[in-house]
């Protein structure tokens, strides 16, 4: 989150941090009727996920750029190998080592790109938490008989994200077993 977004968030009423430090007087906004704390938290978390996705894409841009640079380096190395002066065994050895190091860099960059899946998984976990918050909010509204209910569950929310891990292919064997069992059952 950059400074302009922090400013916008603060201007929008999210003053809990600054006030808890500097101002013990309850904020004026708390006396406004029909403030929806659930909606406020939801909006904040939506902002967090949007900003995280945007920043993740910036990281992906940088990783793409590194990949392009390594590809360019490999092309230059291939060009060097065609030169008559590069036929010396020592030079050939050095060129191969540089090319191999370039390949290692590229592999590590690809691994880093794959690890960026955490952003989508974390976003969905946040949405799951939001769903719980909505349910609690609506329950309290029902219990007290006052207040406004939340908008309801959003289409993109998973019910089962809690079982999702963060290690690649953690659930592969389980999913494959379910697929096999389903296919066998349908064959028979």
């Amino acid at each position: 989150m950059d400074q302009s977004e922090i400013d916008a968030l603060l201007a929008g009423g999210s003053k809990s941090v600054s006030q808890s430090v500097a101002d013990p007087i309850p904020p004026a906004e708390s006396q406004e009727p029909h403030r929806d704390p659930s909606g406020h938290v939801i909006a904040e978390l939506d902002t967090v996920t949007a900003v995280t996705e945007r920043e993740s894409n910036k990281v992906m841009d940088q990783l793409d750029q590194i990949c392009r640079l390594v590809t360019r380096q490999q092309e230059l190395i291939t060009g060097m190998m065609a030169h008559a002066g590069s036929q010396d065994p020592g030079v050939q050895q050095a060129i191969h080592e540089v090319a191999s190091a370039g390949k290692e860099i590229q592999d590590k960059v690809f691994e880093a790109m794959d690890l960026m899946q955490f952003q989508d998984i974390t976003r969905q976990k946040l949405e799951r938490i939001l769903n719980h918050l909505r349910q609690i909010h609506d329950y309290i509204v029902d219990l007290l008989g006052t207040g406004t209910k939340s908008e309801g569950k959003r289409a993109s929310i998973s019910n089962t994200i809690a079982q999702t891990g963060t290690t690649p292919d953690e659930n592969k064997a389980h999913a494959d077993a379910v697929i096999e069992a389903f296919k066998s059952k349908n064959k028979g």
Partner: peptide, 26 residues
Amino acid sequence: TNAAKEDIVEALQAGVNNYVVKPFTP
């Protein structure tokens, strides 16, 4: 990200041919 057995079965019943749970490897 849906990893539960009932989700996988529901997807297969809907017509999905195969299923990968995130995060995945290439």
